[in-house]
Simulated assay, not measured.
Amino acid sequence: MTTTSSAATRGGDGSGALGGAKIFIVGGGSGMGAAIAKMAVARGAKVALAGRSQEKLAAIAAGLGDSVLGTYSLDLGDRSTVDAALAEHGPYDHIVTTAADLTFAPFTSLTDAQIDGMLTSKFWGPINLARAADKHLAPQGSVLFFSGLAAYRQGPGSSIVGVVNIALESLAAALAIELKPKRFNVISPGVVDSETWAGMSPEDRKTFFAQVASGLPTGRVGTVEDEAHAALSVLENGFINGTVINVDGGGRIA
């Protein structure tokens, strides 16, 4: 029996709501991924949550009730595991990945393990998700990647972070052409108050955010809700394709 997708088939006029849509969210156990899941469910979507920590995924899923299709502890670098997870409840209307195992450190001090972690979460992971999308995404569905400001504004310690982010944006543009009519887009967040910075002490984190905010036109750092709102707008608008949406408080121009 063929499953007719909801939002993906109703959004061709640009007015597609998420009611009834199925969304696979990698990184759904915390931060921006969890915020996207909560907002999407509030708009009537069904979500599947994937990430590294089954405990975190279960905690988010518990608050979303019957709107959760399943939770998946994934190694994004394992193509067969990614494919199997998407196959269980596919086809999906949208696939979103906010996964980011990033290390900000001087280039010469980065270990192979740290570089591999960044490549898995921000390069091989999206590649494997796109491969699975070819089979398990509705014909008019979309894939949304998350890159980051380091793609354009490099600084000490962000060498590999910038490389994987700009590669991800190039990949999305190519896939929008090769896998049409499926859509591929990217959200590029700036500094966001999220678990990305959990390794810093509370005081250092506060000082860092204040310093960043002082240089932004918005006068503040981002929230996970800022990014989630932007993400859902891209999913809902069937005419946004092959592009990068900067949600960085003006970080690119500051």
Results as ranks from 00 to 15, higher is better:
residue 225 E to N: 03
residue 81 T to F: 00
residue 88 E to G: 00
residue 53 S to C: 13
residue 231 A to K: 04
residue 203 E to M: 06
residue 160 I to W: 00
residue 215 G to H: 02
residue 198 A to S: 15
residue 8 A to Y: 06
residue 68 V to C: 05
residue 132 A to F: 03
residue 34 A to R: 09
residue 154 Q to H: 09
residue 178 E to D: 15
residue 70 G to W: 05
residue 137 L to F: 03
residue 93 D to L: 07
residue 85 A to D: 01
residue 235 L to G: 06
residue 129 L to A: 02
residue 154 Q to E: 03
residue 51 G to V: 00
residue 220 R to N: 09
residue 143 V to Q: 08
residue 45 A to H: 08
residue 62 A to Y: 08
residue 109 S to C: 13
residue 107 F to I: 11
residue 169 E to K: 10
residue 123 F to L: 15
residue 2 T to W: 12
residue 125 G to H: 00
residue 199 G to D: 10
residue 109 S to N: 05
residue 230 A to H: 08
residue 99 A to Q: 07
residue 45 A to M: 07
residue 146 F to L: 08
residue 12 G to C: 04
residue 216 L to N: 05
residue 5 S to E: 04
residue 136 H to Y: 06
residue 165 N to T: 12
residue 162 G to M: 03
residue 128 N to C: 13
residue 111 T to L: 05
residue 208 F to T: 10
residue 22 K to R: 15
residue 174 A to M: 09
residue 22 K to G: 09
residue 126 P to H: 00
residue 121 S to V: 05
residue 134 D to I: 12
residue 251 G to Y: 04
residue 215 G to T: 01
residue 101 D to M: 05
residue 167 A to H: 10
residue 237 N to H: 13
residue 211 Q to G: 13
residue 248 D to R: 04
residue 160 I to R: 01
residue 97 T to G: 06
residue 15 S to Y: 12
residue 83 D to R: 06
residue 132 A to C: 03
residue 142 S to L: 10
residue 5 S to I: 06
residue 64 L to M: 07
residue 198 A to Y: 00
residue 128 N to S: 08
residue 230 A to E: 02
residue 215 G to M: 11
residue 140 Q to Y: 11
residue 201 S to C: 12
residue 72 Y to Q: 03
residue 94 H to M: 15
residue 233 S to H: 14
residue 191 V to L: 04
residue 47 V to R: 01
residue 29 G to A: 14
residue 73 S to N: 11
residue 205 R to C: 13
residue 252 R to I: 12
residue 208 F to A: 13
residue 118 M to T: 01
residue 158 S to D: 08
residue 245 I to E: 01
residue 90 G to R: 03
residue 13 D to M: 08
residue 177 I to M: 06
residue 74 L to T: 02
residue 48 A to K: 07
residue 222 G to I: 09
